[in-house]
């Protein structure tokens, strides 16, 4: 993980970023000096070109009436027709709205949950307890949504454990977590948070261990209580990493989690649960409308790209994180 300069885990990129301000050596000199590094870079570059750049050719599909039997070369170009169709279709607004609400909800709530959890774990003295809790909470991250989804459907059923608890405490009819359009988005956001907060906390915990313990000792000597230490040492100590991750997450605001929705959604919650990815899947793959779904995918990617640039700028500004 790349860290901001005040932290002991100073990242090499950050160092280089500052070093870059000095006189730049010529390219040939750099090459001669570091040729081995460049050679080691080749396999990665080949993979990148092969799997990330080369497929970009497929973008032309978005501007075509693509027919598999005619291929990329033979399909007719239709200009922006597919884009016009996307933005004028009945579902355009709900799709973007649902995607945005779910994705932003996941980022905000997920970040808060991870952060709170990390702070809590950090305060625990028992090493064994810490380890056990961390392992248990990290585990769900490694299970696929297909498995978790099956469990969720059981847990959230009308007669499932969660409803049993709620009904026994508050009474009333069981809650339709998966069948009520107004609740479904929360179900998605919270279940995703549950799955990911343990893993998300790992980074914060790493940052927390980076805080110089002498600061705590000094504060304790000065009579600061736990709360004061949290406020004046812990939070400032990890603030840069929090800001950094928040900025980097901007690139995800149109990524609401395809697999999860596909597993949890049902006809009752199409109105709030249908997202861009599920639409692309349905129209693009099941209905074979490659052009339309590519166009929508492109729109999403462009928005995502702009947001990533923005987040990079913000990360550089607020967390001093730079790659180039």
């Amino acid at each position: 993980m790349i860290q901001s300069p005040p932290s002991p885990l100073v990242g090499p990129t950050a160092v280089r970023a500052r070093a870059g301000a000095e006189a730049k050596p010529s390219l040939s000199k750099t090459l001669r000096q570091h040729w081995l590094l460049y050679v080691m870079l080749i396999p990665a570059m080949v993979l990148l070109i092969l799997f990330s750049f080369y497929p970009l050719i497929g973008i032309v599909i978005a501007f075509q009436d693509f027919r598999p039997s005619r291929g990329l070369a033979g399909s007719e170009f239709v200009g922006l027709k597919n884009f016009v169709e996307i933005f004028t279709m009945r579902e355009a607004w709900p799709l973007f709205r649902n995607t945005l609400v779910i994705a932003v909800g996941k980022i905000v709530i997920g970040t808060l949950a991870s952060l709170t959890f990390a702070l809590m774990v950090h305060e625990v003295a028992s090493r064994i307890f810490k380890r056990v809790v961390q392992t248990m909470t990290t585990l769900p991250h490694f299970l696929s949504w297909v498995i978790i989804g099956g469990v969720m459907v059981q847990v959230l059923a009308s007669a499932g454990p969660l409803n049993n608890i709620i009904v026994s405490i508050f009474g009333g009819p069981p809650i339709r977590f998966l069948g009520d359009p107004s609740i479904f988005q929360w179900t998605v956001i919270l279940s995703d948070t549950w799955k990911g907060f343990g893993f998300g906390a790992v980074i914060y915990l790493a940052a927390l261990t980076g805080i110089n313990p002498e600061l705590y000792e000094a504060a304790a000597v000065d009579g600061a209580n736990r709360w004061a230490r949290l406020r004046h040492i812990t939070l400032p100590g990890i603030s840069s990493i929090v800001i950094l991750l928040a900025c980097l997450n901007l690139g995800n605001v149109l990524n609401a989690g395809f697999e999860q929705i596909l597993v949890l959604a049902n006809p009752l919650v199409y109105s709030t649960g249908d997202i861009i990815d599920t639409w692309v899947y349905r129209r693009g793959l099941l209905q074979s409308e490659y052009s339309l779904s590519t166009a929508l995918g492109l729109v999403r990617s462009v928005i995502g790209f702009v947001l990533i640039l923005l987040s990079y700028y913000l990360a550089g500004r607020f967390a001093n994180y730079r790659i180039f």
């Binding site: 006809p267 199409y270 109105s271 249908d274 099941l286 209905q287």
Partner: peptide, 23 residues
């Protein structure tokens, strides 16, 4: 027809189920 098919089917399924469960 194939173009409208998916949306039509979705609309139908959504409405029918919402009526059945009382949404």
């Amino acid at each position: 027809m194939a173009k409208v098919f998916a949306d039509m089917y979705k609309l139908e399924n959504e409405t029918f189920n919402a009526i059945v469960v009382g949404n």
